[in-house]
Computed example of a mutant assay.
Amino acid sequence: MHLSPEFGLTWKQIEEDGFPITRKIEILLSSDTAVGISKSNALAQISFAEAYEQLQPEIVILLGDRTETFAAASTALIAGIPIAHIHGGELTEGAYDDAIRHSITKMSHLHFAATEQYRNRIIQLGEQPETVFNVGAIGLDNIKKLPLLNRTDFERSIGRKLLKKNLLITFHPTTLENHSAGDQFEQLLQALDERTNTLLIFTKPNSDKDGRVIVQLIDEYVRNNPDKAVSFTSLGQLRYLSAIQHMDAVVGNSSSGIIEVPAFNVPTVNIGDRQKGRLMGDTIFNCQPLKEEITNAINQALNFLKQKKCSHPYGNGNASEKILQVIKNTKRINIKKKFFDIEYTPDC
């Protein structure tokens, strides 16, 4: 998606941040069907194999659970390149990302989990405990380090004045529920449409199956409601994190609503099953993708007292330093892994 005009050509932000890009691997087909995504994944495997052959990396560091990440992992496994995996051990029962994530864990050699529970789950999958580290969520690091935009600068960056209430909305398809994206998002739009004196800031979905249905609905809604709604293909890291601090709530089903948003003590309305199974703090309000439930959850979130000190299970924003230290201190990685069996007491 970084290389696609449809998703904002976000590779440019990487270079603007000072990171040279050694290879650009074009894999994304202009399709959000199951066939199109599978073909993109096949192209990714071919392309990663060529890149690894040329670059000869000592280690491949992968984050998360997307299909292209799976392609990068499986190709590295076959090439005999050690893999360090970030954000393993988590659950997202409503998306096929869940199975992809656990598959990447079994191909990886170093594991950097975001919580102790996730670390234990990686060990439960048979990984040696000494290779699994609880470092917290790496997405929190930039919240501490980036100089975020104040209200005036943020308004200037999006070309809109914030209103009395402001909601940031990101909704992705639930990939294990075929062709439900449009119906679910319609329910969300109906709930949002009832709000008055509220600015609705939409960020568009990723390249998951049926994502274009949501894009079309966002475009139509913003076109018909220019006084209260605005949309962005990608806000970028700085504007996105800056936006959260100025919002009254974040609405949708993105993992960011579970991991990054609570660090600002901003409430999240988490819709449906896409993130089901993740550890959630006190600022998360769950609901099903039904208009009445979404409306009630938004009302609860808007009554949330931001001054209240809430629990947040994902660390304190120094994951990158911990990961770097482990990799530096790892002298040798044995790619021949042994399965770690958890002791159990058989029934008598």
Rank of each mutant, 00 (worst) to 15 (best):
residue 3 L to Y: 08
residue 4 S to K: 08
residue 6 E to D: 13
residue 10 T to A: 12
residue 20 P to M: 06
residue 20 P to C: 09
residue 20 P to S: 11
residue 21 I to V: 08
residue 24 K to S: 09
residue 24 K to V: 10
residue 28 L to H: 05
residue 30 S to G: 01
residue 30 S to I: 15
residue 35 V to L: 15
residue 39 K to V: 15
residue 40 S to D: 09
residue 42 A to R: 14
residue 45 Q to W: 02
residue 46 I to Y: 04
residue 50 E to V: 13
residue 55 L to Q: 13
residue 57 P to Y: 13
residue 64 G to H: 12
residue 64 G to S: 12
residue 66 R to T: 15
residue 80 G to M: 08
residue 81 I to R: 07
residue 81 I to K: 02
residue 81 I to H: 02
residue 82 P to L: 05
residue 82 P to I: 05
residue 89 G to Q: 07
residue 90 E to H: 06
residue 91 L to C: 09
residue 94 G to Y: 07
residue 96 Y to A: 04
residue 97 D to R: 01
residue 100 I to T: 03
residue 102 H to L: 04
residue 102 H to V: 00
residue 108 S to F: 04
residue 108 S to H: 01
residue 109 H to M: 11
residue 111 H to I: 11
residue 115 T to K: 13
residue 115 T to A: 12
residue 116 E to D: 14
residue 116 E to V: 03
residue 116 E to L: 00
residue 116 E to G: 04
residue 119 R to T: 07
residue 119 R to C: 05
residue 120 N to G: 09
residue 122 I to H: 07
residue 127 E to M: 06
residue 128 Q to H: 10
residue 128 Q to I: 09
residue 129 P to E: 10
residue 134 N to G: 00
residue 138 I to F: 04
residue 139 G to H: 06
residue 146 L to E: 07
residue 148 L to E: 02
residue 150 N to T: 06
residue 151 R to S: 15
residue 151 R to K: 13
residue 154 F to M: 11
residue 157 S to C: 07
residue 159 G to K: 03
residue 163 L to N: 11
residue 163 L to D: 14
residue 163 L to R: 12
residue 176 L to Q: 08
residue 177 E to D: 09
residue 179 H to V: 12
residue 182 G to W: 12
residue 183 D to Y: 12
residue 195 R to T: 02
residue 195 R to A: 09
residue 200 L to G: 06
residue 201 I to E: 06
residue 208 D to A: 12
residue 209 K to H: 11
residue 210 D to A: 02
residue 212 R to K: 14
residue 212 R to V: 09
residue 215 V to I: 15
residue 216 Q to E: 15
residue 218 I to R: 05
residue 219 D to Q: 07
residue 219 D to W: 12
residue 227 D to A: 00
residue 227 D to F: 13
residue 228 K to G: 08
residue 230 V to P: 04
residue 230 V to S: 06
residue 232 F to T: 10
residue 233 T to S: 15
residue 233 T to L: 13
residue 235 L to R: 02
residue 237 Q to P: 08
residue 240 Y to K: 07
residue 242 S to R: 04
residue 253 N to L: 04
residue 256 S to Y: 06
residue 257 G to K: 05
residue 258 I to Y: 11
residue 258 I to H: 08
residue 263 A to C: 05
residue 266 V to K: 08
residue 267 P to R: 08
residue 267 P to F: 10
residue 268 T to R: 01
residue 270 N to H: 10
residue 270 N to V: 03
residue 279 L to Q: 14
residue 281 G to Q: 04
residue 281 G to E: 02
residue 286 N to F: 00
residue 287 C to E: 05
residue 290 L to E: 13
residue 290 L to T: 11
residue 290 L to N: 04
residue 293 E to S: 03
residue 294 I to Q: 02
residue 298 I to L: 09
residue 305 L to W: 15
residue 308 K to L: 09
residue 314 Y to T: 00
residue 316 N to H: 14
residue 317 G to D: 05
residue 322 K to R: 11
residue 325 Q to A: 14
residue 333 I to E: 03
residue 336 K to S: 11
residue 339 F to I: 00
residue 344 Y to V: 15
residue 345 T to I: 13
